[in-house]
Write a protein that binds this DNA or RNA. Structure first.
Lengths: 206, 206
DNA sequence: ACACACATGTAATTGGTTACATGATTTC
DNA sequence: GAAATCATGTAACCAATTACATGTGTGT
């Protein structure tokens, strides 16, 4: 009845392309919505079963009877049923729920003064690198997607989400430049206060 | 030993201001880091106990012996211990972990074509309103914070996080303007294809 | 008298990650 | 024949939300 978000990702993916296995889905997710959504196998496989039991998707081929059938041949593909498709559309029309925000980077920055500016600076640098990598990834996704899917009816929705990702990351990077200056400023102040020998605030012990 | 993030929020809050109760903390969180962090009572109170047991915080006053002591007088305040403070600093120095991203708004937009542009437009409009409200909130937090805390040693870290929030939201709003145009464009195309009588794509039933 | 804000907590449930286990097939 | 990749799954754990339960003091 009340399906998790994972279920809808699966339905959505199958609505775009039939005959995907759990393994496929995970890879598709990483290569398309990866920058704003993630799923683990531990979540995908059980959900696949549940959706099958509920009749929202159907397995293909000999249909999963008997043992799990491991190994490369053990591949089990699924497709959407009409019911599943209807269910997806229902869900799409429902207001999205915004999940409680949790950003540990910001949390550490917020409490950062206790650790001294060098620590925050380190986190910030990591943040920048991460965002640059992410930007590269998104742009790559966009490039590949445009090459081979420009005709696809979903295409325009896809670029919308991509563009949002790009906008968000660019904003983060711009902010991070300014933030870095602030932190460097604070460090040099701390250094001056501490005298010439060390630029560390006195606190440090071994 | 391995403490949840909630534990560190508590330690952090107490490092800034002592003698807070669980109730206080929740309100403080909402009024300061609320736009990037949330906590529920169901998480705070158990954690408070655990942290007390581990000696990272101490209860004040008659110290929590006997019954829970409900009602307005039942207020139990806590402060950081030296160990707790050390632990906070340790955690601050550790690399932040980035939690798996999950944005249902983007997910629905990504799969949006199945529901037609009107649906996505509705979500987008909600998204805009939400972000405008959030922007107002953050700016309010910033205003109040600047008025009464400009001297506070943590102040510069706080504005950094606030500014990030503002930057992120502004980017979201700018993007949303462009996105709205795209969706409207799609709608008018769909309307044209469907003839003069209705501007809805044929799909609709009921 | 009533509503509201203060104040603390528990139980049930969910949603999810991580680590593990297994094994086939391709490629080098 | 070793390593990488394809492929499926389970068990243990954990973090967190939600809904509930309880009760006091203050302001109108």
């Amino acid at each position: 009845m009340k399906s998790s978000q994972t279920a809808y990702v699966i339905l959505g993916l199958l609505s775009i392309e039939s005959r995907q296995s759990g393994y496929d889905m995970r890879r598709t997710i990483q290569g398309s919505v990866g920058y704003f959504w993630g799923e683990s196998y531990g979540q995908i496989y059980p959900t696949l079963r549940r959706l099958t039991a509920e009749g929202l998707i159907t397995p293909h081929g000999q249909a999963a009877k008997g043992r799990p059938a491991k190994g490369r041949g053990g591949r089990q593909e699924y497709s959407l049923t009409a019911v599943g498709h209807a269910r997806l559309r229902e869900w799409l029309a429902l207001p999205y729920r915004r999940d409680p925000p949790r950003d540990e980077f910001l949390l550490k920055l917020f409490f950062g003064r206790d650790a001294g500016p060098e620590v925050s600076e380190r986190h910030l640098r990591e943040f920048q690198e991460q965002n640059r990598r992410l930007l590269a990834t998104i742009e790559e996704i966009g490039r590949i997607g445009t090459e081979k899917n420009a005709q696809h009816p979903h295409f325009r929705y896809w670029i919308l989400t991509l563009e949002y990702g790009v906008a968000r990351i660019r904003a983060a990077l711009e902010w991070s430049e300014r933030a870095m200056e602030v932190l460097e400023q604070m460090e040099s102040e701390a250094g001056r206060r501490a005298g010439k020998k060390t630029r560390r605030p006195a606190k440090r012990r071994s």
